[in-house]
């Protein structure tokens, strides 16, 4: 009985610690970004220039860059992650082939991001450069699109890891019932599996989106680090995570440090709300099923 109580307490303390930690990170970011909030207010959110020398700071280029790269990466990755999840979770379930595939996807998830960045710089950038030359744009090679391509590859394992498990969880009798009505495999996927598993698939996609907005190293190597609002997706840009990593170490003036911390706060809030919305959608869907 006593051990039961202790066990419960330990669990409770553990949970409270995590919540407390999250909260204290938020407070730390907020306190340290106060100088900028006081000085620039909401202007910081829609300001377009980033000039540490003359003290003009605007976050808009980075907010746009972050959202653009993540959304494009998501659009590119969804068809792949969905089809691989169906391949592994439904068509070739528990076969040797899908086991090999799963292992490879897991390996993809543990490759350090700097390796992705290097690979992107040496192999993807030249491909993007030929594309830019054909469209007579400046042949930089590194661009928002290059970063999105790298990100889409990096986030695929995260989307798959969740959605393949949910697809496997679809009750066999539901599927068999559909087959007995003469449904084709495609119809079963479209009408039974995907509707049943959609909240899980969605959660997986969201997890990968969260990964995309926070990725730093790989992005900074291939995005071009240009602190302006990108004219189109084939021009260089920058993201919140990347500008923080680039400038924080050598930032000396209080206001410069504080703006970078406020950027971190914005990133924190974006992730927080994304998760919040996702949870909301997942719960709603479960009721409707």
């Amino acid at each position: 009985m006593i051990s039961e109580k202790i066990y419960k307490k330990v669990l409770g303390i553990g949970g409270a610690l995590i919540v407390g930690l999250l909260f204290s990170i938020f407070i730390t970011l907020l306190i340290n970004s106060l100088p900028t909030i006081k000085k620039l207010g909401f202007k910081f959110l829609y300001g377009k220039t980033w000039d540490p020398v003359f003290g003009n700071f605007g976050a808009l280029p980075f907010i746009i860059g972050t959202i653009l790269t993540s959304v494009i990466a998501l659009i590119i990755s969804i068809p792949f992650s969905l089809s691989v999840s169906l391949f592994v979770g439904e068509y070739y379930r528990d076969t040797l082939m899908s086991k090999i595939l799963e292992t490879f996807i897991e390996i993809l998830a543990v490759i350090p991001s700097v390796i992705f960045g290097l690979w992107g710089l040496f192999y993807l950038a030249p491909i993007v450069r030929t594309l830019q030359l054909k469209l007579s744009l400046p042949p930089t090679g590194v661009s928002i699109f290059t970063a999105s391509l790298i990100l889409s590859i990096m986030i695929i394992p995260y989307a798959i890891s969740v959605s393949k498990e949910v697809i496997k969880l679809v009750p066999i009798d539901l599927k068999e019932a559909a087959f007995s009505f003469g449904a084709t495999h495609y119809e079963v996927i479209k009408k039974i599996i995907l509707p049943y598993a959609k909240s899980g698939v969605f959660a997986g996609i969201l997890l990968s989106f969260g990964r995309a907005i926070g990725e730093t190293m790989a992005v900074t190597m291939v995005i071009g680090n240009s602190n302006y609002i990108p004219k189109n997706i084939l021009t260089p840009g920058n993201t919140i995570a990347s500008i923080i990593a680039n400038e924080f170490l050598e930032a000396v003036e209080t206001i410069h440090i504080s703006t970078l911390i406020e950027l971190a706060l914005i990133l924190f809030l974006i992730s927080f709300f994304l998760n919040f919305i996702a949870n909301f959608i997942i719960k709603k869907q479960k009721v409707s099923l």
Binding site: W50, D51, P52, V53, S226, N227, N246, V252
Partner: peptide, 21 residues
């Protein structure tokens, strides 16, 4: 227009991290 500093508001160009970048 630009001034001097450890990070400045570059009018043009792309950025690489470190000398090797």
């Amino acid at each position: 227009k630009v001034g001097s500093g450890t990070s400045v508001n570059w009018p043009v160009g792309i950025g690489g991290k470190g000398n090797e970048g």
